[in-house]
Design a protein around this nucleic acid. Structure first.
Lengths: 198, 198
DNA sequence: TCTCCAATGTGAGCGTCACTTACATTGCGA
DNA sequence: TCGCAATGTAAGTGACGCTCACATTGGAGA
Protein backbone atom coordinates (compact mmCIF):
# COMPACT_ATOMS: atom_id res chain seq x y z
CA UNK A 1 0.00 0.00 0.00
CA UNK A 2 2.54 2.56 -1.13
CA UNK A 3 4.70 3.04 1.94
CA UNK A 4 7.01 6.02 1.86
CA UNK A 5 10.53 6.46 3.19
CA UNK A 6 10.96 9.81 4.89
CA UNK A 7 8.80 12.22 6.78
CA UNK A 8 7.25 13.58 3.63
CA UNK A 9 5.27 11.37 1.32
CA UNK A 10 6.42 12.73 -2.01
CA UNK A 11 3.14 13.15 -3.80
CA UNK A 12 0.39 12.59 -1.32
CA UNK A 13 -2.13 14.57 -3.30
CA UNK A 14 -1.89 12.34 -6.37
CA UNK A 15 -1.76 9.23 -4.20
CA UNK A 16 -4.95 10.28 -2.43
CA UNK A 17 -6.79 10.85 -5.69
CA UNK A 18 -5.67 7.51 -7.02
CA UNK A 19 -6.60 5.66 -3.83
CA UNK A 20 -9.96 7.44 -3.71
CA UNK A 21 -10.61 6.48 -7.33
CA UNK A 22 -9.90 2.85 -6.48
CA UNK A 23 -12.23 2.98 -3.51
CA UNK A 24 -14.99 4.65 -5.51
CA UNK A 25 -14.77 2.09 -8.27
CA UNK A 26 -14.85 -0.69 -5.71
CA UNK A 27 -17.73 0.52 -3.60
CA UNK A 28 -19.14 3.84 -4.72
CA UNK A 29 -18.82 7.25 -3.08
CA UNK A 30 -19.84 6.02 0.38
CA UNK A 31 -16.89 3.63 0.41
CA UNK A 32 -14.43 6.53 0.55
CA UNK A 33 -13.20 7.34 4.04
CA UNK A 34 -10.39 9.83 4.44
CA UNK A 35 -9.16 8.01 7.52
CA UNK A 36 -9.01 4.82 5.56
CA UNK A 37 -7.14 6.33 2.64
CA UNK A 38 -4.63 7.91 5.00
CA UNK A 39 -4.08 4.62 6.77
CA UNK A 40 -3.52 2.75 3.53
CA UNK A 41 -1.05 5.37 2.35
CA UNK A 42 0.84 5.17 5.64
CA UNK A 43 0.09 8.72 6.63
CA UNK A 44 -1.69 10.33 9.55
CA UNK A 45 -5.41 11.02 9.41
CA UNK A 46 -4.81 14.76 9.35
CA UNK A 47 -2.47 14.72 6.36
CA UNK A 48 -5.13 14.67 3.63
CA UNK A 49 -6.40 18.01 4.84
CA UNK A 50 -3.13 19.61 3.70
CA UNK A 51 -4.21 18.85 0.14
CA UNK A 52 -7.99 19.04 0.18
CA UNK A 53 -10.16 21.32 2.29
CA UNK A 54 -12.64 18.49 2.86
CA UNK A 55 -13.84 15.12 1.67
CA UNK A 56 -16.05 16.61 -1.02
CA UNK A 57 -13.13 18.38 -2.65
CA UNK A 58 -11.24 15.11 -3.01
CA UNK A 59 -14.29 13.37 -4.44
CA UNK A 60 -14.78 16.23 -6.86
CA UNK A 61 -11.34 15.55 -8.29
CA UNK A 62 -12.18 11.89 -8.68
CA UNK A 63 -15.44 12.78 -10.41
CA UNK A 64 -13.46 15.07 -12.72
CA UNK A 65 -11.38 12.10 -13.81
CA UNK A 66 -14.59 10.28 -14.63
CA UNK A 67 -15.79 13.13 -16.83
CA UNK A 68 -12.43 13.36 -18.56
CA UNK A 69 -12.52 9.65 -19.30
CA UNK A 70 -16.05 10.01 -20.59
CA UNK A 71 -15.14 12.89 -22.90
CA UNK A 72 -12.20 10.86 -24.22
CA UNK A 73 -14.43 7.86 -24.81
CA UNK A 74 -16.85 10.07 -26.74
CA UNK A 75 -14.06 11.38 -28.94
CA UNK A 76 -12.81 7.87 -29.62
CA UNK A 77 -16.29 6.61 -30.47
CA UNK A 78 -16.93 9.47 -32.85
CA UNK A 79 -13.56 9.18 -34.57
CA UNK A 80 -14.12 5.54 -35.43
CA UNK A 81 -17.72 5.80 -36.60
CA UNK A 82 -18.41 5.79 -40.36
CA UNK A 83 -21.22 8.35 -40.29
CA UNK A 84 -23.06 10.72 -38.01
CA UNK A 85 -25.80 8.28 -37.05
CA UNK A 86 -23.28 5.61 -36.09
CA UNK A 87 -21.25 8.19 -34.22
CA UNK A 88 -24.28 9.12 -32.13
CA UNK A 89 -25.07 5.49 -31.40
CA UNK A 90 -21.50 4.78 -30.37
CA UNK A 91 -21.46 7.89 -28.21
CA UNK A 92 -24.52 6.61 -26.38
CA UNK A 93 -22.82 3.25 -25.99
CA UNK A 94 -19.77 4.93 -24.52
CA UNK A 95 -22.05 6.44 -21.86
CA UNK A 96 -23.59 3.06 -21.14
CA UNK A 97 -20.16 1.45 -20.99
CA UNK A 98 -19.00 3.89 -18.35
CA UNK A 99 -22.22 3.51 -16.37
CA UNK A 100 -22.28 -0.28 -16.34
CA UNK A 101 -18.53 -0.83 -16.48
CA UNK A 102 -17.59 1.49 -13.65
CA UNK A 103 -20.82 1.93 -11.72
CA UNK A 104 -19.23 3.27 -8.56
CA UNK A 105 -17.49 6.05 -10.44
CA UNK A 106 -20.64 6.78 -12.42
CA UNK A 107 -22.65 7.14 -9.22
CA UNK A 108 -20.07 9.57 -7.86
CA UNK A 109 -20.16 11.65 -11.04
CA UNK A 110 -23.87 12.23 -10.61
CA UNK A 111 -24.02 12.41 -6.84
CA UNK A 112 -25.61 15.78 -6.38
CA UNK A 113 -24.00 16.49 -3.04
CA UNK A 114 -20.58 16.64 -4.66
CA UNK A 115 -21.60 19.61 -6.74
CA UNK A 116 -24.00 21.21 -4.24
CA UNK A 117 -23.00 24.66 -3.30
CA UNK A 118 -20.67 25.24 -6.20
CA UNK A 119 -18.26 22.84 -7.84
CA UNK A 120 -14.65 23.79 -8.58
CA UNK A 121 -13.58 24.59 -12.14
CA UNK A 122 -11.50 21.42 -12.17
CA UNK A 123 -14.75 19.47 -12.03
CA UNK A 124 -16.91 21.75 -14.16
CA UNK A 125 -14.50 21.85 -17.08
CA UNK A 126 -14.26 18.10 -17.73
CA UNK A 127 -18.02 17.83 -17.17
CA UNK A 128 -18.60 20.54 -19.75
CA UNK A 129 -16.20 18.82 -22.15
CA UNK A 130 -18.21 15.62 -21.87
CA UNK A 131 -21.39 17.52 -22.51
CA UNK A 132 -19.82 19.12 -25.60
CA UNK A 133 -19.03 15.65 -26.91
CA UNK A 134 -22.66 14.62 -26.61
CA UNK A 135 -23.91 17.86 -28.14
CA UNK A 136 -21.50 17.44 -31.05
CA UNK A 137 -22.74 13.93 -31.80
CA UNK A 138 -26.38 14.99 -31.75
CA UNK A 139 -25.72 18.11 -33.81
CA UNK A 140 -23.88 16.15 -36.50
CA UNK A 141 -26.96 14.08 -37.24
CA UNK A 142 -29.00 17.19 -38.03
CA UNK A 143 -26.57 19.90 -39.14
CA UNK A 144 -29.32 22.24 -40.27
CA UNK A 145 -31.16 22.36 -36.95
CA UNK A 146 -30.91 25.40 -34.74
CA UNK A 147 -28.88 25.05 -31.54
CA UNK A 148 -31.92 25.07 -29.28
CA UNK A 149 -33.41 22.09 -31.12
CA UNK A 150 -30.12 20.24 -30.91
CA UNK A 151 -29.94 20.96 -27.20
CA UNK A 152 -33.47 19.78 -26.72
CA UNK A 153 -32.75 16.53 -28.53
CA UNK A 154 -29.50 16.02 -26.68
CA UNK A 155 -31.06 16.59 -23.29
CA UNK A 156 -34.10 14.40 -23.86
CA UNK A 157 -31.92 11.63 -25.25
CA UNK A 158 -29.45 11.97 -22.43
CA UNK A 159 -32.36 11.86 -19.98
CA UNK A 160 -33.63 8.57 -21.40
CA UNK A 161 -30.25 6.92 -21.17
CA UNK A 162 -29.46 8.34 -17.78
CA UNK A 163 -32.85 7.48 -16.34
CA UNK A 164 -32.67 3.91 -17.53
CA UNK A 165 -29.24 3.49 -16.01
CA UNK A 166 -30.36 5.02 -12.73
CA UNK A 167 -33.43 2.82 -12.49
CA UNK A 168 -31.50 -0.34 -13.32
CA UNK A 169 -28.70 0.43 -10.90
CA UNK A 170 -31.19 1.39 -8.21
CA UNK A 171 -32.78 -2.04 -8.58
CA UNK A 172 -36.14 -0.55 -9.55
CA UNK A 173 -36.51 -2.68 -12.66
CA UNK A 174 -35.72 -5.97 -10.96
CA UNK A 175 -39.13 -7.55 -11.32
CA UNK A 176 -39.74 -6.24 -14.81
CA UNK A 177 -36.69 -7.24 -16.76
CA UNK A 178 -37.80 -10.83 -17.13
CA UNK A 179 -38.77 -13.04 -20.03
CA UNK A 180 -39.98 -12.16 -22.53
CA UNK A 181 -38.30 -8.80 -21.89
CA UNK A 182 -34.65 -9.18 -21.01
CA UNK A 183 -32.36 -6.43 -19.91
CA UNK A 184 -30.49 -6.57 -23.22
CA UNK A 185 -33.70 -6.09 -25.19
CA UNK A 186 -34.71 -3.23 -22.97
CA UNK A 187 -31.36 -1.62 -23.45
CA UNK A 188 -31.81 -1.72 -27.21
CA UNK A 189 -35.28 -0.25 -26.89
CA UNK A 190 -33.90 2.57 -24.78
CA UNK A 191 -31.13 3.17 -27.27
CA UNK A 192 -33.68 3.32 -30.09
CA UNK A 193 -35.76 5.79 -28.18
CA UNK A 194 -32.69 7.80 -27.29
CA UNK A 195 -31.63 8.09 -30.89
CA UNK A 196 -35.14 8.60 -32.21
CA UNK A 197 -35.86 12.00 -33.70
CA UNK A 198 -38.21 14.00 -31.60
CA UNK B 1 -42.27 18.13 19.32
CA UNK B 2 -44.67 15.55 20.76
CA UNK B 3 -43.60 15.26 24.36
CA UNK B 4 -45.05 12.31 26.21
CA UNK B 5 -46.22 11.94 29.78
CA UNK B 6 -45.21 8.60 31.22
CA UNK B 7 -42.36 6.20 30.81
CA UNK B 8 -43.78 4.87 27.58
CA UNK B 9 -44.29 7.04 24.57
CA UNK B 10 -47.58 5.65 23.34
CA UNK B 11 -46.85 5.24 19.67
CA UNK B 12 -43.18 5.79 19.14
CA UNK B 13 -43.09 3.81 15.95
CA UNK B 14 -45.60 6.02 14.16
CA UNK B 15 -44.03 9.14 15.63
CA UNK B 16 -40.62 8.11 14.30
CA UNK B 17 -41.96 7.52 10.81
CA UNK B 18 -43.69 10.85 10.81
CA UNK B 19 -40.65 12.72 12.12
CA UNK B 20 -38.41 10.94 9.62
CA UNK B 21 -40.78 11.87 6.81
CA UNK B 22 -40.60 15.50 7.88
CA UNK B 23 -36.81 15.39 7.98
CA UNK B 24 -36.60 13.70 4.59
CA UNK B 25 -38.87 16.25 3.00
CA UNK B 26 -36.85 19.04 4.54
CA UNK B 27 -33.37 17.85 3.68
CA UNK B 28 -33.35 14.51 1.90
CA UNK B 29 -32.28 11.12 3.21
CA UNK B 30 -28.97 12.37 4.63
CA UNK B 31 -30.83 14.75 6.91
CA UNK B 32 -32.29 11.87 8.91
CA UNK B 33 -30.38 11.08 12.09
CA UNK B 34 -31.87 8.60 14.52
CA UNK B 35 -30.29 10.46 17.43
CA UNK B 36 -31.92 13.63 16.26
CA UNK B 37 -35.36 12.09 15.85
CA UNK B 38 -35.12 10.52 19.30
CA UNK B 39 -34.12 13.82 20.83
CA UNK B 40 -36.98 15.66 19.17
CA UNK B 41 -39.46 13.07 20.33
CA UNK B 42 -38.15 13.28 23.89
CA UNK B 43 -36.91 9.73 23.97
CA UNK B 44 -33.52 8.13 24.48
CA UNK B 45 -31.25 7.45 21.52
CA UNK B 46 -31.66 3.70 21.96
CA UNK B 47 -35.45 3.72 21.86
CA UNK B 48 -35.84 3.76 18.06
CA UNK B 49 -34.07 0.41 17.89
CA UNK B 50 -37.02 -1.18 19.69
CA UNK B 51 -39.09 -0.45 16.58
CA UNK B 52 -36.64 -0.64 13.69
CA UNK B 53 -33.60 -2.91 13.38
CA UNK B 54 -31.60 -0.09 11.82
CA UNK B 55 -31.78 3.27 10.11
CA UNK B 56 -32.44 1.78 6.70
CA UNK B 57 -35.53 -0.01 7.91
CA UNK B 58 -37.03 3.25 9.12
CA UNK B 59 -36.19 4.99 5.86
CA UNK B 60 -37.73 2.11 3.93
CA UNK B 61 -41.03 2.77 5.68
CA UNK B 62 -40.81 6.44 4.76
CA UNK B 63 -40.06 5.53 1.16
CA UNK B 64 -43.07 3.24 1.20
CA UNK B 65 -45.25 6.22 2.10
CA UNK B 66 -43.83 8.01 -0.91
CA UNK B 67 -44.75 5.16 -3.22
CA UNK B 68 -48.23 4.91 -1.74
CA UNK B 69 -48.75 8.61 -2.29
CA UNK B 70 -47.49 8.24 -5.84
CA UNK B 71 -49.85 5.36 -6.60
CA UNK B 72 -52.73 7.37 -5.17
CA UNK B 73 -51.77 10.37 -7.30
CA UNK B 74 -51.71 8.15 -10.38
CA UNK B 75 -55.16 6.82 -9.62
CA UNK B 76 -56.50 10.33 -9.10
CA UNK B 77 -54.95 11.57 -12.34
CA UNK B 78 -56.37 8.71 -14.35
CA UNK B 79 -59.82 8.97 -12.84
CA UNK B 80 -60.16 12.60 -13.86
CA UNK B 81 -58.78 12.35 -17.40
CA UNK B 82 -61.24 12.34 -20.31
CA UNK B 83 -59.36 9.76 -22.40
CA UNK B 84 -56.42 7.40 -22.35
CA UNK B 85 -53.93 9.86 -23.85
CA UNK B 86 -54.83 12.53 -21.33
CA UNK B 87 -54.66 9.96 -18.55
CA UNK B 88 -51.13 9.05 -19.55
CA UNK B 89 -50.07 12.67 -19.68
CA UNK B 90 -51.56 13.39 -16.28
CA UNK B 91 -49.91 10.30 -14.88
CA UNK B 92 -46.56 11.58 -16.07
CA UNK B 93 -47.34 14.95 -14.53
CA UNK B 94 -48.14 13.30 -11.23
CA UNK B 95 -44.64 11.81 -11.27
CA UNK B 96 -43.12 15.18 -12.02
CA UNK B 97 -45.20 16.79 -9.30
CA UNK B 98 -43.89 14.39 -6.70
CA UNK B 99 -40.32 14.77 -7.90
CA UNK B 100 -40.28 18.55 -7.96
CA UNK B 101 -42.80 19.12 -5.18
CA UNK B 102 -41.21 16.80 -2.64
CA UNK B 103 -37.64 16.38 -3.89
CA UNK B 104 -36.23 15.05 -0.64
CA UNK B 105 -38.78 12.27 -0.48
CA UNK B 106 -38.29 11.52 -4.16
CA UNK B 107 -34.55 11.18 -3.66
CA UNK B 108 -35.13 8.75 -0.80
CA UNK B 109 -37.53 6.66 -2.87
CA UNK B 110 -34.82 6.09 -5.44
CA UNK B 111 -31.82 5.93 -3.15
CA UNK B 112 -30.42 2.55 -4.07
CA UNK B 113 -28.89 1.85 -0.67
CA UNK B 114 -32.34 1.70 0.90
CA UNK B 115 -33.27 -1.28 -1.21
CA UNK B 116 -29.81 -2.86 -1.46
CA UNK B 117 -29.72 -6.34 -0.07
CA UNK B 118 -33.44 -6.92 -0.11
CA UNK B 119 -36.23 -4.52 0.68
CA UNK B 120 -39.10 -5.47 2.98
CA UNK B 121 -42.51 -6.26 1.51
CA UNK B 122 -43.87 -3.11 3.09
CA UNK B 123 -41.70 -1.16 0.66
CA UNK B 124 -41.95 -3.43 -2.35
CA UNK B 125 -45.74 -3.56 -2.33
CA UNK B 126 -46.41 0.18 -2.59
CA UNK B 127 -43.59 0.44 -5.13
CA UNK B 128 -45.18 -2.28 -7.22
CA UNK B 129 -48.56 -0.57 -6.90
CA UNK B 130 -47.08 2.64 -8.27
CA UNK B 131 -45.51 0.73 -11.14
CA UNK B 132 -48.89 -0.87 -11.88
CA UNK B 133 -50.43 2.57 -12.15
CA UNK B 134 -47.89 3.59 -14.75
CA UNK B 135 -48.26 0.34 -16.65
CA UNK B 136 -52.03 0.74 -16.67
CA UNK B 137 -51.82 4.24 -18.11
CA UNK B 138 -49.47 3.17 -20.89
CA UNK B 139 -51.45 0.05 -21.67
CA UNK B 140 -54.71 1.99 -21.98
CA UNK B 141 -53.33 4.06 -24.84
CA UNK B 142 -52.66 0.92 -26.91
CA UNK B 143 -55.02 -1.79 -25.70
CA UNK B 144 -54.16 -4.15 -28.52
CA UNK B 145 -50.42 -4.25 -27.87
CA UNK B 146 -48.85 -7.26 -26.20
CA UNK B 147 -47.68 -6.88 -22.60
CA UNK B 148 -44.00 -6.89 -23.49
CA UNK B 149 -44.46 -3.94 -25.84
CA UNK B 150 -46.40 -2.06 -23.20
CA UNK B 151 -43.67 -2.78 -20.67
CA UNK B 152 -41.06 -1.58 -23.10
CA UNK B 153 -42.91 1.65 -23.72
CA UNK B 154 -43.56 2.17 -20.04
CA UNK B 155 -39.95 1.63 -19.07
CA UNK B 156 -38.46 3.81 -21.79
CA UNK B 157 -40.93 6.57 -21.02
CA UNK B 158 -40.35 6.28 -17.32
CA UNK B 159 -36.62 6.38 -17.98
CA UNK B 160 -36.87 9.64 -19.89
CA UNK B 161 -38.87 11.31 -17.15
CA UNK B 162 -36.76 9.92 -14.37
CA UNK B 163 -33.48 10.79 -16.06
CA UNK B 164 -34.53 14.33 -16.70
CA UNK B 165 -35.57 14.77 -13.09
CA UNK B 166 -32.33 13.26 -11.84
CA UNK B 167 -30.18 15.46 -14.06
CA UNK B 168 -32.06 18.61 -13.13
CA UNK B 169 -31.98 17.86 -9.41
CA UNK B 170 -28.30 16.94 -9.62
CA UNK B 171 -27.60 20.35 -11.09
CA UNK B 172 -26.21 18.83 -14.28
CA UNK B 173 -28.34 20.95 -16.57
CA UNK B 174 -27.54 24.25 -14.89
CA UNK B 175 -25.67 25.84 -17.75
CA UNK B 176 -27.98 24.53 -20.43
CA UNK B 177 -31.45 25.48 -19.32
CA UNK B 178 -31.05 29.05 -20.44
CA UNK B 179 -32.65 31.22 -23.09
CA UNK B 180 -33.76 30.29 -25.63
CA UNK B 181 -34.34 26.98 -23.89
CA UNK B 182 -36.00 27.38 -20.54
CA UNK B 183 -36.63 24.64 -18.04
CA UNK B 184 -40.36 24.77 -18.75
CA UNK B 185 -39.80 24.29 -22.48
CA UNK B 186 -37.45 21.43 -21.79
CA UNK B 187 -39.96 19.82 -19.52
CA UNK B 188 -42.56 19.90 -22.28
CA UNK B 189 -40.08 18.43 -24.73
CA UNK B 190 -39.33 15.63 -22.29
CA UNK B 191 -43.03 15.01 -21.74
CA UNK B 192 -43.57 14.85 -25.50
CA UNK B 193 -40.77 12.38 -25.87
CA UNK B 194 -42.05 10.38 -22.93
CA UNK B 195 -45.52 10.10 -24.41
CA UNK B 196 -44.32 9.56 -27.95
CA UNK B 197 -44.90 6.14 -29.40
CA UNK B 198 -41.75 4.20 -29.91
C1' DT C 1 27.30 26.60 1.46
C1' DC C 2 24.31 27.97 5.07
C1' DT C 3 19.91 29.50 6.79
C1' DC C 4 15.33 30.13 7.32
C1' DC C 5 10.63 29.45 6.09
C1' DA C 6 6.65 27.68 3.69
C1' DA C 7 4.97 23.33 2.64
C1' DT C 8 3.89 19.17 4.51
C1' DG C 9 3.19 15.73 8.08
C1' DT C 10 1.93 14.32 13.23
C1' DG C 11 -0.72 13.28 17.57
C1' DA C 12 -4.28 14.25 20.20
C1' DG C 13 -8.73 15.55 20.52
C1' DC C 14 -13.79 17.28 19.48
C1' DG C 15 -18.45 16.34 18.25
C1' DT C 16 -21.57 13.36 15.68
C1' DC C 17 -23.07 9.21 14.07
C1' DA C 18 -25.17 4.15 14.08
C1' DC C 19 -25.57 0.62 16.92
C1' DT C 20 -25.14 -2.57 21.36
C1' DT C 21 -25.81 -4.19 26.02
C1' DA C 22 -27.41 -4.58 30.59
C1' DC C 23 -30.85 -2.94 33.22
C1' DA C 24 -35.52 -0.31 34.46
C1' DT C 25 -40.41 0.40 33.99
C1' DT C 26 -45.02 -0.65 32.88
C1' DG C 27 -49.48 -2.19 30.68
C1' DC C 28 -52.06 -6.12 29.96
C1' DG C 29 -53.65 -10.85 29.66
C1' DA C 30 -54.00 -15.10 32.37
C1' DT D 1 -53.35 -9.67 41.22
C1' DC D 2 -49.40 -11.10 39.35
C1' DG D 3 -45.89 -11.92 36.02
C1' DC D 4 -44.02 -11.22 31.74
C1' DA D 5 -43.32 -9.26 27.26
C1' DA D 6 -43.09 -4.91 25.30
C1' DT D 7 -40.92 -0.78 25.64
C1' DG D 8 -38.00 2.47 27.60
C1' DT D 9 -33.04 4.12 29.60
C1' DA D 10 -27.87 4.95 30.58
C1' DA D 11 -23.65 4.13 29.27
C1' DG D 12 -20.44 2.73 26.08
C1' DT D 13 -17.99 1.23 21.42
C1' DG D 14 -15.90 2.23 17.25
C1' DA D 15 -15.91 4.90 12.99
C1' DC D 16 -16.25 9.12 10.95
C1' DG D 17 -15.02 14.25 9.30
C1' DC D 18 -12.50 17.74 10.80
C1' DT D 19 -9.30 20.99 13.80
C1' DC D 20 -5.20 22.61 16.21
C1' DA D 21 -0.77 23.07 18.12
C1' DC D 22 3.48 21.35 17.09
C1' DA D 23 7.32 18.70 14.30
C1' DT D 24 10.01 17.98 10.20
C1' DT D 25 12.01 19.05 5.94
C1' DG D 26 13.38 20.50 1.10
C1' DG D 27 14.74 24.14 -1.43
C1' DA D 28 15.16 29.20 -2.56
C1' DG D 29 17.80 33.28 -1.44
C1' DA D 30 21.81 35.24 1.25
Amino acid sequence: MAKRDGYHHGDLRAALIRAALDAVEAGGPDAVSLRDLALKLGVSTAAPYRHFPDRRALLAQVAAIGFSDLAAAYARAQAQAPDAAAALRETARAYLNLAFGRPGLFRLMFASDIVDGGAPASLLEPAAAAWEGLFRAVGATTPEADPAAVKRRAITGWSTLHGFITLVQGGRLKGFMTEPLTEAELLEAVLDKTLHEV
